[in-house]
């Protein structure tokens, strides 16, 4: 017997996307395998590592802890949607590059989305706030030091971009 499929539509990185999926399909799988937006990574599938973090209606959430059908009508931004409009690296992406904030790069998209949402609310974070902001994401390569540096650098870049 074939599994029942449900239609879903959502905005992903500014574009309307839709599909027909079983209710149990995780948002992470929908993004990665149905929409082929493979920048969102899956590191644990139980909500601890943070690699799958995306923005849902502007807030950072774990895409492995959501069903695609539950975000029907929502607005999703993934790491692929965080570059600048001219195609250059977005502030957080650029900061990770400048500060050597990534090594293998697998956890990186989850950090970048988390930090982007964080900086929207805290445009001038202290080092302590930066550390706290990334404390729900696991990285096995960097020891986090350069990621914290990247948060602070990203804030600088964003503020520079705001200047006329």
């Amino acid at each position: 017997m074939s599994e029942k499929h449900i239609d879903v539509s959502m905005t992903v990185n500014g574009f309307p996307r839709s599909g027909s999926v079983p209710a149990r399909r995780l948002l992470s799988d929908f993004l990665r395998h149905d929409l082929q937006l493979t920048g969102t990574h899956v590191g644990c599938e139980h909500g601890v590592c943070g690699a799958c973090t995306v923005l849902l209606n502007g807030k950072a959430v774990r895409s492995c802890l959501l069903f695609a059908v539950s975000v029907d009508g929502g607005e999703i931004v993934t790491v692929e949607g965080l570059a600048n409009q001219d195609g250059s690296l977005g502030p957080v992406q650029q900061a990770f590059h400048e500060c050597h904030g990534l090594q293998c790069g697998f956890c990186t998209p989850g950090f970048i989305t988390t930090i982007s949402a964080f900086l929207d609310e805290h445009p001038n974070p202290t080092e302590g706030q930066a550390r706290e902001a990334i404390a729900g994401n696991l990285c096995r390569c960097t020891g986090y030091q350069n990621i914290i540096k990247s948060v602070l650098r990203a804030a600088e870049i964003r503020n520079e971009m705001m200047q006329p």
């Binding site: 990665r32 493979t38 790491v79 692929e80 992406q93 990770f96 590059h97 050597h100 790069g105 998209p109």
Partner: peptide, 22 residues
């Protein structure tokens, strides 16, 4: 020297195993 591999990876354009063979 800043890493040559970064721009691809920070954009989400990396290709890890499960990104292949859709």
């Amino acid at each position: 020297i800043l890493r040559r591999e970064d721009p691809r990876l920070v954009r989400g354009d990396g290709r890890y195993l499960d990104d292949l063979g859709q």
